[in-house]
């Protein structure tokens, strides 16, 4: 009984200390932020209730987008190699094959209308800075026309699949033009020197971000970088919930590759240790019965 009391005191002291240096300190150093908003409700320039016309969207896309963007899935190839594209625009323009599914509809429509405000990069592309975002605003288009483009992009997008390969594709489309992932052998499609000039600093390699930032942080950060890192040059990418979860899943598959092995082995080691502990207890009882 007395030993249980001693144990209780130790558990209490260790527990209080642990609470102070882990959950409490974490809460002080990383205050909670607004929850991720996958409807991007701050973007209101385009009436997204309009039903888009796919046929008209196709015409508009071919007239306005494919001079810079490839859409490999419908046979519009890249206009020039990555290095040349990066040199021309600062960053490689995205292939639009998957745009209809990885981006939220409201975000995509508002992005076409005005990319800089959708990305929340007004602080970077100011008139005084002399910098301009390589894609022009299509705010001269009617809301109907923009929704036609969105409808077309959604119609050509592949249906979502699951599994590492599909997670990887989503990651490459969403992050891979700027970020490398060395532990997966992925290099940013925009050459490092070019992207450094374009962004002001080399975007970090994301191999270990699942560990250094953690899922919770990434979940808020990817949704809206400005919330956690005000002033960052990283754009809000407008991923929908599913695409963002795939990106994070991929980061975990690469950054914490042994998670499944760790968790299954952990159970067995615990069972083994429990058996050891029980046997040790029985042996102790036997031995001490002779001396007490």
């Amino acid at each position: 009984m007395k030993e249980f009391k001693i144990l209780a005191v130790i558990v209490a002291l260790v527990g209080i200390t642990y609470y102070g240096i882990e959950p409490y300190a974490h809460h002080v150093m990383h205050p909670e932020v607004a929850p991720a908003d996958f409807t991007f409700k701050d973007l209101k320039n385009v009436d997204t209730s309009l039903v888009g016309n796919v046929e008209n969207g196709k015409v508009l896309v071919e007239a306005n987008c494919i001079a810079c963007h490839s859409i490999e899935s419908v046979g519009h190839p890249q206009v020039m190699p990555n290095a040349d594209a990066a040199a021309s625009y600062g960053v490689v323009p995205p292939d639009l094959s998957g745009a209809g599914w990885i981006y939220d509809k409201n975000y995509l429509a508002n992005f076409i209308y005005d990319p800089v405000s959708a990305m929340k990069l007004q602080h970077k592309f100011t008139p005084e800075s002399g910098k301009a975002f390589p894609m022009p605003s299509y705010n001269w288009m009617s809301a109907q026309e923009i929704m036609d483009i969105v409808a077309y992009l959604q119609s050509v997008a592949p249906t979502a699949k699951s599994g590492t390969e599909s997670h990887k594709k989503t990651f490459e489309a969403a992050c891979g033009r700027c970020h490398s992932m060395a532990y997966a052998g992925l290099e940013s499609t925009t050459p490092i020197d070019t992207i450094k000039t374009y962004m002001g600093a080399t975007p970090p390699d994301l191999s270990q971000y699942i560990k250094s930032r953690g899922e919770h942080y990434l979940y808020s950060f990817i949704n809206d970088p400005q919330v956690l890192l005000p002033g960052t040059a990283m754009p809000r990418t407008g991923l929908n919930k599913k695409a963002q979860e795939e990106v994070i899943a991929y980061m975990e598959e690469i950054g914490d590759r042994k998670k499944a092995e760790r968790e299954s082995l952990g159970i067995w080691v615990m069972i083994y240790t429990l058996i050891f502990a029980i046997l040790a207890y029985l042996w102790k009882r036997k031995i001490w019965s002779e001396v007490h």
Binding site: I21, M270, A277, A280, W283, K284, W288
Partner: peptide
Amino acid sequence: SKDFFVLGFFMLFFFYLVFFHYGFAM
């Protein structure tokens, strides 16, 4: 024999940390 018994239960705690709750140490 008493130490092994204490060690057994301590190891249960230790391996729980090793496999499932290592963030405080890394």
